[in-house]
């Protein structure tokens, strides 16, 4: 498997080791046609990879394959492989989706904290892993909130309701919640589309700070955002991966005409 895909890697000039790799991945909603068609994509470790493309191109659908979110709804079907560390196939029916979600975190389009306290929101992932030592949880909650650049704003009111926070703070809380369990990959589904420009800037800066800790895959509706934060960019169209390369290359000299048209604002 590794030899088969290494050719693809050198061809597109990917310099980093792959953390997660989709190999000939297809996905079907219910019994309908493929929403993702034969996508092969190697996501570089400890880098930010952006998924861009026009609405309905399948970028969110692709993202949700990586933590088996589609398993929550009946009759969805995957084909191909998603390899984590070149060994574990995340979409194998032999792997429990819970195991996948323990290793792959996710941040959603709209902030969705639980209607519980700030502290309990961050602690929840640890609690479902069976952690009950107060000291360990306290420490991890503080560390995660600090990593999410939220600690200074909430350290005096950890027991307040998460809903009392502003939208941008809620989204950073959701990032802290995902970080608390030390995921190897975090999926971001248009994480700033419900936020104002200042909150967006905060979240983007936070993502850049997290780069040395975790691999990130971001769906974004905004090409500017992809250009600002990502190291690699994948352009999707009609369920297919059109082009994947370093972000600088995609935005300056795309190889495919379709990519050039989209970047140039010809459609989308």
């Amino acid at each position: 498997m590794v030899s088969e895909t290494s050719g693809h890697r050198s061809q597109s000039g990917i310099a980093h080791k792959a953390k997660v790799e989709a190999v000939n991945l297809s996905f079907y909603y219910g019994g309908s046609k493929a929403a993702i068609k034969n996508v092969s994509l190697a996501i570089p470790e400890k880098q930010i990879t952006a998924l861009i493309g026009p609405s309905g191109c399948g970028k969110t659908t692709l993202l949700r394959c990586f933590n088996r979110m589609h398993d929550l709804y009946d009759n969805n079907r995957y084909e191909g492989k998603i390899l984590l560390d070149s060994t574990v196939n995340l979409i194998s029916t032999k792997i429990d989706p819970i195991e996948v979600r323990m290793r792959v975190g996710m941040v959603f389009q709209r902030p969705n904290p639980f209607p519980k306290s700030i502290y309990e929101n961050v602690a929840y992932g640890l609690r479902i892993r069976g952690e009950s030592r107060r000291r360990v949880i306290d420490q991890k909650v503080e560390q995660s909130l600090q990593q999410a650049a939220l600690w200074n704003e909430v350290k005096d009111r950890l027991n307040d309701q998460a809903y009392d926070l502003s939208g941008g703070q809620q989204q950073r809380l959701c990032i802290a919640r995902a970080l608390a369990t030390d995921p190897e990959l975090i999926l971001f589904d248009e994480p700033t589309s419900a936020l104002d420009p200042i909150a967006t800037a905060n979240v983007e800066q936070l993502m850049l700070q997290l780069k040395d800790k975790v691999t990130m895959l971001v769906v974004t509706h905004s090409m500017q955002q992809a250009a600002r934060i990502s190291d690699y960019t994948a352009f999707m169209y009609l369920g297919e991966l059109v082009e994947f390369d370093q972000t600088s290359k995609i935005f300056s000299a795309p190889a495919q005409e379709k990519t050039r048209d989209y970047i140039g604002g010809r459609f989308g």
Partner: peptide, 15 residues
């Protein structure tokens, strides 16, 4: 209860 809360719990690895 909005499905976003269900998905949030599942995404953290809840059964």
């Amino acid at each position: 209860i909005p499905s976003s809360l269900r998905e949030a719990a599942y995404a953290l690895g809840a059964s």
